[in-house]
Amino acid sequence: MSKFHLALASTPVDRRVLMKGAAAAGAMSLAMRVPGVAGAQEPLRIAFSVPGLNFPFFVHMVSLAEQHAADIGGIEFITLDGQEGGQPSSTKQTADLEAMVAQGIDGLVISPNDAAALAPAIQSVIDAGIPVVTVDRNVAADVLTLAHVGADNVEGGRVQGRYLIEILPDGGEIFELQGQPGASAAIDRNAGLTEVLDEQDAVEVIVSQPAAFARAEAVRVVEASLASNPEPDAIVCANDDMAFGAAEVALANGLDIPVIGFDALPEALIAIGEGRMAATIEQFPGQQATQAMDILLAFIDDGTEPEEHDLYLSPALITADNLGEAERAAEAGIEADAMEGATPEATPAG
């Protein structure tokens, strides 16, 4: 089955207005169509599982999904926090799914901590007759979920690579901080970055290490890497939390180099505006969450399946020149750009 991108139209659009409009339209439509949503006595029980609410990215995603459910009405929204001891845990996330099957739910949206490790548990949910939509991170390909909604993480990695080549016209040596081993987002972002950089030889990755999507681990990895490679020309990271740690170490060592993140968190937007980071990648987590919820609820309603299994939002490069285009610009105290255009539409993946 081919993958489709939910590509934003070339004419800009105010994404905050777009999301509110889409949420309102979705709420009205689903409230009229979904059994138990608009007036039935028994609410739908929808679980939303993420690797860990210690990640600001997932806090934002869950918050918007819960608000979307509240706007629709008639939904008992169950948040499942996959962290244990302050760290994402596939064991904890698996146990949460087992508990949901035992207690009974009508549907599941999940961002799997590890694509392979969560495969058996997600398959067990499906075997119990419960529809599953993955969001942001995917599960192993042999697990037949209803749908996957996410950013095109491979393309996001490519965007990072192209930006590095642009800002280092004379070439350079860079550090790459990968995410959590086994996470589909980490695998795909690395693949996209590697693809672009392998096509040229001016910009070279001299350190490529996982840092678990975590700020503290990024500090440790960068400090250790500087011991043998004291003057990198840039640091590219698979999420913003790692970029914050990398930027902290760069500053402490007197390195005035570009640091690139991924997620467009409000803190990253502020850091870019202040010159502590060069760029980040926007992947529109709010739109991912609401799209995933709508697909799940439509299936619960009348068995409607999405035309394509994989729906991807095209990622966008955010720099000091376009901070207002970020989904969370307002949270960073940045006035959103006045943008015109239409809602995202599905176009075939390249």
Rank of each mutant, 00 (worst) to 15 (best):
F48D: 04
L311G: 05
V154D: 11
N54A: 07
G341D: 14
I318V: 06
M32K: 13
G341V: 07
N54M: 09
Q288C: 03
L144Q: 15
D81V: 06
P344L: 08
D302T: 12
V125N: 06
D321R: 12
P43M: 02
G192M: 09
N322V: 05
P51S: 11
I318M: 04
D142I: 04
V196W: 03
E267P: 06
P232Y: 04
A279M: 04
A121R: 02
H5N: 15
T79F: 03
T304G: 03
G179N: 10
L323T: 05
A9F: 10
A24Q: 03
V135R: 03
V34F: 01
F58M: 10
L313A: 08
V222K: 03
T343D: 15
V135L: 13
A65M: 03
G172N: 09
M1A: 12
L53S: 06
S10A: 15
T91S: 07
E204G: 01
R189L: 01
P88M: 10
G26N: 07
P315I: 10
I78K: 03
E223K: 06
A349T: 13
D14C: 10
V221R: 08
K3E: 13
G21L: 06
L251Q: 15
L6D: 07
E166C: 00
A202W: 09
N54D: 14
Q178H: 08
A7M: 09
P232H: 10
A279H: 02
P285I: 10
E166V: 03
A115K: 07
M32L: 11
G52D: 08
R276L: 13
A224L: 12
G85N: 02
G73S: 00
E340H: 12
P112C: 11
E282Q: 07
L269H: 10
R16K: 15
G341I: 13
L97H: 07
D170L: 09
D142M: 07
A47I: 05
L313Q: 09
P181A: 05
G85C: 06
G171F: 06
S2V: 14
D301Q: 07
T79W: 02
A218S: 08
P56E: 07
A24Y: 09
F58G: 11
V196L: 07
R162V: 11
E155R: 14
E155F: 11
G275W: 01
L317F: 06
L193G: 10
I235A: 04
L118F: 14
G129T: 00
E76N: 12
S29Q: 10
L64W: 13
G52H: 05
A47C: 09
Q160Y: 03
